[in-house]
Design a protein around this nucleic acid. Sequence first.
DNA 1: ATGAAAGCGCTAACAC
DNA 2: GTGTTAGCGCTTTCAT
Lengths: 332, 332
Amino acid sequence: MTKIKDVALAAGVSTATVSRVIANKPHVREEIRQRVLAVVDQLGYRPNLVARNLREQKSKIIGLIVSDIQNPFFRYISRSVEDVAHKNGFSVILCNNDEDPLKEKMYLQLMQDQNIAGIILSPTRQAVSKFETILKLNIPMVVIDRRIHNVEVDNICIDNVSSSFKVTQHLVEKGYQRIGGIFGKDSITGQERYEGYLNALKDSGMKSHSELVKFVAPREETGYQATLKLLQLANKPDALFTSNSLLAAGALRAIQEKKLAIPEQIALTTFDDTSWARLVTPPLTVIDQPAYEIGQTATELLMQRIDDPSRSTREITLNGKLIIRQSSTFHS
Amino acid sequence: MTKIKDVALAAGVSTATVSRVIANKPHVREEIRQRVLAVVDQLGYRPNLVARNLREQKSKIIGLIVSDIQNPFFRYISRSVEDVAHKNGFSVILCNNDEDPLKEKMYLQLMQDQNIAGIILSPTRQAVSKFETILKLNIPMVVIDRRIHNVEVDNICIDNVSSSFKVTQHLVEKGYQRIGGIFGKDSITGQERYEGYLNALKDSGMKSHSELVKFVAPREETGYQATLKLLQLANKPDALFTSNSLLAAGALRAIQEKKLAIPEQIALTTFDDTSWARLVTPPLTVIDQPAYEIGQTATELLMQRIDDPSRSTREITLNGKLIIRQSSTFHS
DNA sequence: ATGAAAGCGCTAACAC
DNA sequence: GTGTTAGCGCTTTCAT
């Protein structure tokens, strides 16, 4: 690989001058600049980013740590993070938590060890509760999707409690009586969505039935299993609310298998407006999370924090949007 | 950040000894080893990976370059690549091509500049046709999803032509007469799938109608638009074959909007068995690509190539599986 | 078995 | 405006 020394030699200048030209620094005679540029071109010289990183003590890479790239929500996030990052000359390392605090810790360490410029993190529940540890890493960071309280960190989420409240209230208004819920366990998100669900029931004077609520790992298969169990109850739910799209896919499969009519025999609503939510029969009522925007805003925030680490932190809350379709509109 | 020198000082040994202990090298007295380990622990020392990378001229990061992370197929790939990579102590940088040769080139450069250990690449069409240029980068590499001919490189794909043949033939057998197709443009994959489609028609003595074939960017929206156009023809197709799941989602939306009955008025089949393909009404007949396996095998291949760059290259072809559901089974 | 020192490729402080 | 050189943190050769 050709290095800066080779260029210097061939151009008859010092490495310092080459470095200045590369970095577009002033104080170089135009004539020399041209000469160096020509040699760079001719030799196909490319700066070694590792050496530069070591020397400058910082890289142009940011890390994105999410809990599951298979989840469409995080897919949109990752796409927007990449877009904004590249626009700013940064690359992105993407990693999965699997909601596992050990994996999370490992990745955070890795990024620190790699001199990563900054991190966009969707933290595990454990991380949320003792976030000071993570903050000690002292890396520019933006936390997404999970609310961190009483800690100085940029934080951008959607309002899970009120979004969840909205969709549950909608089911109540439509006259559903026994509203079941399947929530992600191990994640704050699932907890908050459960909270909104409970609030809505309480608010409308309805009793909550603990046998209608399941906490499971947020995957298609577990959603399927949990729904089957709910449908086996003597006193079945007449509506179901799942806290993400993977769970919804599983729930839908179970309901179809049991040949129950949606929304006549059971309503189905979920978080996440995936591409298929409006394609199934009937189309699903959903909470649309502005995933692309979350990633976009988070990355812009991170760029600013990298530029100025002492800048005051901010908390941004985006609102989920209730999109009513036919899967919840039988009664009334 | 504490560095190797600090540890050496605190343990009363040289940096060389600390380095040996860290790397688990022999020729260190057990007593000293213990002492150093204790200090490492106490000081919370972590090796600086950037410095190590610079010194050793190689990192423990691999790059994964795909054409679109939004495409569920690549999502599975990325998941399996990560899994296998981490099992081997590697991290993964993920990047999107968008089928754009310039972006692709940029990322390949970036990875070279970062001393990346190896790359898993789903190349653009342009890259396929002059792959020698990429090979010149001289980075351990495995090419997935696109077949590279006459070039010494590890290559793992599915058989697009025969998979496409299978599903088209299936439509013919079911008695469909005017079979339309929507294929990704700009990608070899789309070309090959078109080829299989043509072969199947020819094979069964059917005429192909060029007005029934569209080449578009592989996205939901374009699939939707293309389908609308096909449905506006005086002589509409009675079956439709899309070359990936995003196109299928768009096609399905268009068909639903036009209130055409599947499979009675039009059949719909596609590549990629996404989670929702069996959830829509009616469930879709698909070609299931073993995405997870492709990523897994590719990563294992890459690990081996990194270990031994002179090892002979291999080409692996996995077979797509035709899964027949109700979206194509009206006739007969 | 251990240490001193060179050097990976780069940038920047300092000298001229 | 340009060159010399130190040093980022690490591994490894070569002495001892």
